[in-house]
Design a protein around this nucleic acid. Structure first.
Length: 275
DNA sequence: CGGGGTTCCTGGCCGC
DNA sequence: TGCGGCCAGGAACCCC
């Protein structure tokens, strides 16, 4: 499940590979989710940016190719990985490749997405009105204008449970199920609370930044399908809460609790994260 | 426009 | 070995 650290890892790798490259021709799976891949033939990549979990591939014609990886989306250059025969047709016969772009340097960029929760769009630069989540997205976690006070104010706009708010992308951008659980644990805050004091908002913002920074440094968390351009991330070896329900808390030894909140498995420590 | 419910998808795993 | 059932879950979409 690619969240901000996973998408940022891919962005950095893609930026150094793709800026200045032109797309000659393209192909996509017929689903409406991927059809926009075909709209960038002849375009030249000018920048590779990120907003939350969305990858924004800036084109020289003032448009952007917007890529959301969903649950299982992967970007890679053909033949960069795999137990390769070297035959350039082999990987495209991978039934889970949903789109590809033939680059003018001879490489082919592949978008692979087993579960098809990903999505592609082409928009005029900065025009995100047609992508509701992106249009309503909160500030980037490392935005220097975002402080505890601003974060606190954004959280106060809703009375939903805190976990749900974080997943909505509205108070802050790029946080998904893994890093929400990790940051709430680190901050000692229960996922179902509906209001936070200023002090606890500050603590949660710090925890989010710490958790996201560590994950970026380790190239993301590879649990199932996530791969960056060069392989697996390493942050899965540093998770302290997510996915550990029933195991003992690494801080106090009590058994971590698990429950579904907002259709997501949620793990927390009943002692360290008491209500 | 926020909130709640539904839907999209398929590999992997479990139990019989 | 085969198979039904269940799980993983981000966000678009629809309705109120």
């Amino acid at each position: 499940m690619p969240e901000l650290p996973e998408v940022e890892t891919i962005r950095r790798q893609l930026e150094s590979e793709l800026v200045g490259v032109g797309f000659e021709r393209s192909w996509s799976h017929p689903s409406a989710k991927f059809i926009a891949a075909r709209d960038v033939d002849g375009a030249v990549v000018e920048a590779v940016d990120r907003r939350g979990k969305y990858l924004l591939i800036g084109l020289a014609d003032d448009r952007e190719l917007v890529v959301h990886l969903g649950m299982t989306g992967q970007l890679r250059f053909e033949n960069d990985r795999g137990s390769g025969s070297g035959d350039s047709e082999v990987l495209v016969e991978d039934p889970y490749v949903r789109a590809w772009w033939q680059c003018d340097d001879g490489r082919r960029l592949l978008f692979r997405d087993v579960r098809r929760f990903g999505r592609l769009a082409v928009v005029d630069a900065g025009e995100y009105g047609g992508i509701a989540t992106l249009a309503a997205m909160g500030p980037e976690p490392f935005d220097s204008n975002l402080d505890g006070r601003a974060f606190h104010a954004r959280l106060r706009k809703s009375r939903q449970q805190l976990k749900t708010q974080l997943l909505s992308q509205r108070p802050i951008a790029g946080v998904g199920n893994i890093y929400a659980d990790e940051a709430l644990f680190l901050a000692g805050i229960n996922p179902v609370v509906r209001t936070l004091s200023l002090e606890r908002s500050e603590r949660l913002l710090s925890a989010l930044r710490e958790v996201l920074t560590g994950a970026i440094e380790r190239g993301g968390t590879t649990l199932r399908d996530y791969r960056n351009l060069s392989g697996e991330g390493q942050n899965q070896h540093h998770l302290v809460c997510y996915g550990r329900a029933g195991q003992e808390c690494l801080q106090c030894g009590q058994e971590l609790r698990g429950r579904v909140i907002d259709a997501r498995s949620t793990t927390w420590c009943p002692h360290c994260q008491a209500r």
